[in-house]
């Protein structure tokens, strides 16, 4: 009887151990870009060009 009880307890422990869930979140950090160079990265937009884009977005917008 005792052997059976111990056996059942061990079985329960082994069974429940499978229910363990890893709760820590794996965080990935982006690596270093390995592709070819984009001209827009090497020649960033000038302040004037950026302002033109801003104006283009603002004009004609319905703000209601």
């Amino acid at each position: 009887m005792r052997v059976r009880t111990i056996g059942l307890a061990l079985l329960a422990v082994f069974t429940l151990s499978g229910c363990y869930e890893e709760t820590s979140v794996i965080l990935h950090e982006p690596g270093v870009y390995k592709g070819s160079v984009d001209p827009s990265v090497t020649n960033p937009r000038t302040a004037e060009e950026q302002e033109k884009l801003r104006a283009r977005l603002s004009e004609g917008q319905d703000r209601q």
Partner: peptide
């Protein structure tokens, strides 16, 4: 960008405008 973080070949980059792009050759 999470896509850039998980990419095994690091083909993603972000432009100065904050646009996330990628290299199809990679």
């Amino acid at each position: 960008a999470p896509c850039a973080a998980v990419c095994p070949v690091d083909c993603f980059y972000t432009t100065d405008d904050g646009v996330v792009l990628h290299d199809k050759d990679l």
